[in-house]
Amino acid sequence: MGELVVSDKRVEAARDGTEEMCQYLTFSVSDECFAMSIGAVKEIIETPQVTRVPMTPDYIRGVINLRGSVVPVVDLGARLGRSPLILTKRSCIVLVEVRAGVGDGHVLGMLVDEVKSILDIARDDIRPPPEFGSEIRTDFIEAMGRVDDIFLIILSMDHVLSIQELAALRRLGEEAAQTSQDVDP
């Protein structure tokens, strides 16, 4: 998608020399398309068997065996306040490197319904997030990116996959309260 636009933008960029392009990965979650900066993506894998971890909130899908390492997987559907995703043939896990502190990198998996493509979006087409009106938590939105006159939500991985927050919401009782807050705009 958006291939024509991309090439147009490239032509423009070449023409005035000021245009900066950034690369984004787009994917769908519960029939909605999102984007994230490609920089944080380490790898995209098909969904292997996910082992459930008890006593964790919905959005902790479980853990997977990634070549001998145990890697946690976040269900992006549940994390964005929707229902947990149902696995299909096209379900994928996007492996992302996140930081819990300086020099403290962790690999997390992010379960999505389908990975779409990698897009170049010009800086000019990046807009600040709307202050309200979005159905997902505003701090999860890093920016809006215009592609083909449609605005895509660019997710802020720092917030969506914040280790502190994911780890803190462990307890069952607290989870319900927190989730309702999340849904409440």
């Binding site: 008890p54 006593m55 853990v63 001998g68 780890a167």
Partner: peptide, 27 residues
Amino acid sequence: IKPLGKLFERLHGVAGATILGTGEIAL
């Protein structure tokens, strides 16, 4: 024993994970 990492550090009742011969993970 494979550590579960920071994400689960406040999870009580589970000490870690291990990878079984089948490649599955057991807690």
